[in-house]
């Protein structure tokens, strides 16, 4: 049982980070039908801002990272995505791919390609013993912070005028505009929220790994795409569940697969994505009637 509890906490913790990433990606996709590769760099840049400002204390670093990425997300929307808005989806896709590449290599230009160590909150890496199970505090903190953030995001989307407008825009963007909802405002707000979620994912991820490098966010974003596909593209609860599911599957494959197959566990996850796309394009968590409008 001990191994199971440990694996479960591991899986929920990493799944939490995936869920935050997937939600950030899913928000933008839902409204703009844009798969935002640059979400990877929103995450990476948040980590770099923390690295540069952590000397002033964690609260300052947290605020600086959130503010920095918020501005970055809004600028990306304004400068890169707005000019191609309304173009066909493949143009949007390639634009975000190019923006991601630009930001990533700007980081290489400034900081070099080598990883740097970053210990955000050293006290959190201690494990605690609960009923004979050793659990790293950071995993519990990650889960708690994610639950809080998801609850806050959920409340924002359900209780505030802007949140309801965002959900309406995600369901039918043109109809929302026909009812007078201002496209630029909703999209900017979605990018802002997406940036905040990226910051949270970055800090929790780096607190676990202790390493910052220009390709840090890439892995997370790829998993995030996978999670949104698994959860059903355009569905926000689906994205969160998809993120958790991918975390669970990855960790339990690691534990359960025979040793010589373990390194390939991510290949299995990506294979599962292709299968979901072909067999259940509406995602795993939605009824077949809820197919994505094309």
């Amino acid at each position: 049982m001990t191994w199971f509890v440990q694996a479960l906490v591991d899986a929920t913790s990493i799944g939490s980070i995936y869920a935050l990433t997937a939600l950030g990606i899913g928000l933008i996709f839902g409204i703009m039908r844009l798969i935002n590769f640059a979400h990877a760099e929103f995450i990476t840049i948040a980590a770099y801002v923390v690295m540069l400002t952590i000397a002033f204390g964690f609260p300052v670093a947290l605020f600086a990272a959130a503010a920095g990425v918020l501005i970055l997300a809004l600028l990306s929307e304004r400068l890169a995505f707005r000019p191609v808005r309304g173009a066909d989806p493949s143009t949007l896709l390639i634009t975000s791919f190019a923006l991601s590449y630009l930001l990533q290599n700007t980081l290489v230009l400034i900081f070099g390609a080598r990883p740097s160590g970053l210990n955000i909150l050293p006290e959190l890496s201690q494990p605690i013993l609960i009923g004979g199970v050793r659990l790293p505090i950071i995993h519990l903190v990650t889960i708690a912070v994610t639950v809080l953030l998801l609850a806050a995001t959920g409340a924002f989307l359900r209780k505030t005028r802007m949140g309801i407008e965002m959900r309406a825009a995600a369901a039918d963007f043109e109809m929302a505009r026909l009812l007078g909802i201002r496209a630029n405002r909703v999209i900017a707000a979605a990018f802002g929220l997406s940036g905040v979620l990226a910051t949270a994912a970055a800090i929790l991820y780096v607190a676990q790994t202790g390493v910052v490098e220009p390709r840090l966010g890439l892995h997370l974003a790829l998993i995030g795409f996978v999670a949104t596909v698994v959860g059903g593209m355009g569905s926000l609860p689906g994205a969160v569940l998809g993120g958790l599911a991918v975390g669970m599957v990855t960790v339990f494959l690691q534990v359960l697969l025979p040793a010589d197959l373990r390194p390939y566990r991510e290949a299995f996850v990506y294979l599962a994505v292709i299968l979901v796309l072909v067999l259940r394009p509406q995602g795993l968590f939605r009824p077949a009637s809820a197919r994505e409008r094309v």
């Binding site: 795409f225 796309l277 094309v294």
Partner: peptide, 16 residues
């Protein structure tokens, strides 16, 4: 798959 789904599938294949 249509449009974006097809692109994502090719990306997943690359990762595999």
């Amino acid at each position: 798959l249509a449009g974006i789904g097809a692109s994502i599938a090719t990306l997943a294949f690359l990762a595999i």
